[in-house]
Design a protein around this nucleic acid. Structure first.
Length: 496
RNA sequence: GCCGCCAUAGCUCAGUUGGUUAGAGCACCAGAUUGUGGAUCUGGGGGUCCCCCGUUCAAGUCGGGGUGGCGGUACCA
């Protein structure tokens, strides 16, 4: 006995992977429909690529020697080539565009959604499989393409039920960041490591605040758990320059508040990036998007690898409480930017591209918290359940089910082996609108009992004793079997 | 990866200085009601007290190691 028990497999899902039930699938489906409709309104067309790609096509993350890369699920094909599950939707798009370059219209504007996979430590709202929804314009170098992406992101969030003011699309530029680095003397290959450290420090501004970032730019920082993070080791004046840039660089419309150009004047790339940023800002302002929706924020860094120009981040700015009453800030629910070098990895000539990616799973959780109707609509009704009371007359019940189905009404015969009470409970759990009851009494009279479960549940609130409950038989009526379909249809219409 | 906290029924948790057969609420199943969801009452099923080793007459409880979870931090294309 105990041996048998021990040999049973424990039913469990792998870490960071989750099942999704009917209610969540329906809500997610509505959410995807909204996003899709906005993207199509902006003129993007659908595309799907596989979940598996050749590892070298995904980026620079090749399995070194015999060890597949960390963070990426990888395995070898039977011809020994390395394959990987995609970890975003941008790298596969670059591969697709390069592979089909000659027949695609340029600029090529596409949207894609699907699951992506990252083999890293899961956490609250962080999974190893999650859904992204991307839109990209490939083959357009103009800042107008970047501006359009930002406006579309803002429109999408509002269409999903996030009020204006509860989100902001922040934009920055990798070129500007490079210019700032140059201004403090961090140029050349020998400083690549320190530049990375500086960027990571800036990226933590929202979480650690100016003082934490100051420590990370200088000698280093010891966190609450006692762990020490080595800093960039910059001199005090360099730290001050970066902090004043990221903090004080809150631009007024069209005009940086402090001497951005003065600072960046020392580098062409920085000035160029600033020009682009300000052009994007002009474009979105002209289109009616104010700074409460889209604004420049010099502390945005985003991914460190393939972005070459403007970068975007969609942040939720409101605070809510979780189930335990702790304040929760959602922060980033999407991001993107310009990646002019990615397609060039496959081709001799380069192709500019810009895009944006929504973290669907994370945004879904946020929409639940703000009570967006897109995800909080009432649960879908289940089928009308025809009870199986008399096992010798299954064919009769099946005929009723078929009649309902022919009339376009979702219906099913109870297929289990339990008694009547359990069948009622089953219908209740399925969220059925109604049950159809025919025992020997009804059959003798050629009738059926129809019970409205929604109305019945409402009526039960006023009934306290069991006797009352039994005798009242709330929301139940009998009808000739020949009129079953029309009565059910009328009942469904009443329920709305 | 690093630091800290935690692990008892499907869920939330009690469990005394180590001491008989490990409990509660909720959930689930059944009966009260020849044939009716809810409420109430009664009963029932369900446990490797995370795993292994050790200390002890005796371990859910103490010690060591492992695994898993949570929080922070690092990384995050």
């Amino acid at each position: 006995m105990s041996d048998q028990k021990k040999s049973k497999i424990e039913a469990r899902s792998p870490r960071g992977l989750a099942d999704r039930d009917a209610a969540e699938l329906a809500a997610t489906g509505r959410m995807l429909d909204v996003i899709r409709s906005v993207y199509e309104l902006y003129g993007f067309e659908a595309l799907e690529t596989p979940a598996i790609e050749y590892t070298d096509a995904l980026g620079k993350f090749l399995p070194d020697q015999d060890r597949p890369n960390e963070g990426v699920f990888s395995f070898q094909d039977d011809d020994e080539q390395w394959l990987s599950l995609r970890y975003d939707l941008t790298a596969p798009l670059a591969r697709y565009v390069a592979q089909n370059f000659d027949r695609l219209p340029k600029p090529f504007r596409s949207y894609r959604f699907g699951n992506v996979y990252r083999n890293e430590k899961p956490g609250p709202g962080r999974f190893r499989q999650f859904m992204q929804f991307d839109a990209d314009t490939v083959g357009a170098a103009s800042p107008a393409a970047d501006a359009e992406i930002c406006m579309m992101a803002a429109d999408t969030l509002e269409k999903l039920g996030i009020p204006r003011g509860d989100y902001v699309i922040k934009i920055n530029s990798r070129k500007v960041l490079d210019g700032v680095m140059k201004a403090i003397g961090l140029e050349g290959d020998e400083n690549a490591g320190r530049r990375l450290t500086v960027l990571r420090a800036i990226d933590k501004m929202d979480r650690l605040g100016p003082e934490g970032v100051r420590q990370l730019l200088g000698p280093g920082r010891k966190d609450d758990s006692g762990d020490f993070t080595k800093g960039a080791g910059l001199a005090d004046d360099a730290v001050a320059t970066i902090l004043s840039f990221t903090l004080g660089g809150q631009y007024k419309d069209g005009e940086p508040r402090f001497g951005l150009f003065e600072l960046l004047g020392r580098s062409n790339v920085g000035a160029e990036g600033a020009e682009e940023l300000l052009e994007i800002e002009d474009l979105v302002r002209d289109a009616g998007f104010g700074p409460e929706r889209i604004r420049i924020d010099p502390s945005i860094v985003r991914g460190l690898e393939y972005y070459t120009g403007p970068v975007f981040e969609a942040d939720l700015t409101f605070e809510t409480k979780d189930e335990k009453g702790h304040p929760v800030r959602f922060g980033s629910v999407g991001g993107g930017g310009r990646y002019d070098g990615l397609i060039g990895r496959f081709r001799s000539d380069n192709t500019p591209a810009t895009g944006f990616s929504i973290g669907v799973s994370r945004l879904y959780a946020a929409l639940k918290l703000v009570g967006s109707p897109v995800v909080s609509a009432a649960a879908r009704l289940g089928p009308v359940v025809v009870l199986a009371l008399d096992r010798d007359h299954i064919a009769d019940y099946q005929r009723m089910v078929a009649a309902l189905r022919n009339a376009g009404v979702s219906a099913e015969l109870y297929l289990g082996s339990s008694g009547m009470k359990a069948q009622m409970k089953y219908a209740d759990k399925r969220n059925s609108p109604a049950v159809v009851i025919q025992g020997s009494d009804e059959r003798a009279k050629g009738e059926v009992q129809i019970k409205d479960l929604i109305e019945g549940a409402r009526a039960s609130a006023a009934i306290s004793t069991n006797e009352e409950w039994k005798s009242a038989r709330p929301a139940q009526f009998s009808a000739p079997e020949s009129e079953l379909v029309e009565h059910i249809k009328a009942l469904l219409a009443r329920q709305g």
